[in-house]
């Protein structure tokens, strides 16, 4: 399969790789939201960690991804896009925008869905840790 130049670039130079510490520590920190979506047997696991200010601004983001090149690029791109946004703004990011930006073929759309889900999951985790009600939103799939 031919990958777009942007996918190849994210694959070779992934942005914001890493985490904010050992998983057991990050779990208890209220300034960090963690989203882990996917499963190894499906061939995709995305982990997104967001460092959020008390005002709800995403200061920093880190990701790790087990998955194909498109999955890596989708999660790498997600970290770039959420940084500096408020959590509510970040929730507006749609998988279709990721598809468009990376020129993903139809068979790889699920990678972008996973990236969107990881943003949601990380923000929900942060909200729960900070006692903020999580809005019940219909998921896109």
């Amino acid at each position: 399969m031919a990958y777009s130049e942007k996918v190849v670039d994210h694959y070779q130079n992934p942005r914001n790789v890493g985490s904010f510490g050992a998983s057991s520590d990050v779990k208890t920190r209220t300034d960090i939201g963690v989203g882990i979506v996917g499963a190894p047997e499906c061939g995709d696991v995305m982990q997104l960690q967001l460092k959020v200010t008390a005002e709800g601004v995403i200061e920093d983001a880190k990701f790790k991804c087990f998955g194909c090149g498109s999955a890596i690029a989708s999660s790498s791109l997600a970290t770039e896009w959420v940084k500096g946004r408020t959590v509510d703004e970040a929730l507006q990011i749609k998988n279709t925008q990721i598809v468009e930006e990376l020129a993903l073929p139809p068979v790889k759309i699920h990678c972008s869905v996973l990236a969107e889900d990881s943003i949601r999951a990380a923000i929900e985790d942060w909200k729960k840790k900070n006692g903020i009600a999580v809005a019940e939103e219909a998921h896109a799939h």
Partner: peptide, 14 residues
């Protein structure tokens, strides 16, 4: 492996 969350978990002994 530097990108892999599964490798991290393995390294943490999970």
């Amino acid at each position: 492996r530097k990108l892999s969350p599964l490798y991290d978990l393995y390294k943490e002994g999970v």
